[in-house]
Design a binder for these strands. Structure first.
Lengths: 147, 147
DNA sequence: AATTGCATTGAGACTCGGTATCATCGCGCC
DNA sequence: GGCGCGATGATACCGAGTCTCAATGCAATT
């Protein structure tokens, strides 16, 4: 659904050169549904013999992060992962079973942040909320065989 | 205020052996106010010639995490850091200027999480909220010289 | 106080994510 | 088509964290 070309367009519009490697990484990213690590992409690129260097993948990921096409997640395990997302402020609920990620909007968080700012005296300029759990599909799937 | 011996007591009560290295790490940790990285402790241990192995420091940190004496933070930079804290569920506001961390309780977040769970259908079993900003002291200090 | 089992330790090798270097390449403007 | 500069890739490098394994020492027990 995200379509590689849409991503490529964004890269172009932002004034960055549209190169074959970037196109390739955009392709890999747009084919993903859940979260993935840089290593996942490197492995896939290698498996598909795309001939892209490791460093280039990292650079492309940084670029996509900067453009707001991707967001970095910190999984409970401490790993860093990426998810495709819309370039507006939001948060993610990540399924700890299948890795799928769903975007959510503010949902009242702004008020919570304001409360905290007032109570602590901090000037809060940045926050991160990450939620982990089991998505509807996985809940159903686990029905007969609970963990 | 945290006192090394209080930490040692917790370790003991939990059924773990109280060894010299663990005592030493407890000492290092209790002397800290803001957040710190594992590397910070390793460096300090080395500087003080405590003769503790690197691996041991990591193991001690893991132990303290497990006991709820420490919590792991993911800084916006992607670094992993630790902060001393109480072993009850809570969140942190981290000063991006001086590194100091303040604990905060729920502050209405629970309701937000419930809302999200209901909206998305996820069964949320874990969440993390991290806030970054400038603490009161640093705000005052920056008064005459804004960033 | 001596014995002893087993958790813990330390040194160092190893893995792995990410970055820096630098000569080469190729995108896109003219 | 030519050209400048941004982008690339091979490789070396770095730093965080883990693993291994023989040696150590805590603490329970007598």
């Amino acid at each position: 659904m995200p379509t590689t070309s849409a991503l490529v367009t964004i890269i172009d519009r932002a004034g960055y050169r549209v190169t074959a490697p970037r196109r390739a990484v955009a392709g890999l990213v747009s084919g993903r549904t859940g979260h993935f690590t840089a290593a996942d992409l490197v492995a896939e690129a290698r498996a598909r013999r795309l001939g892209i260097g490791r460093a280039t993948i990292f650079r492309a990921l940084d670029l996509l992060l900067e453009l707001g096409i991707l967001e970095r997640l910190d999984l409970p395990s401490g790993e860093h992962a990426y998810v495709r997302c819309e370039p507006i402020h939001h948060h993610h609920v990540v399924c700890s079973s299948c890795g799928r990620a769903t975007e959510i909007d503010d949902a009242g968080l702004r008020a919570v942040v304001d409360t905290i700012a007032e109570r602590t005296g901090y000037e809060i300029d940045r926050h991160r909320l990450e939620l982990f759990g089991r998505c509807p599909d996985c809940r159903v799937a686990a029905e007969g065989a609970p963990s």
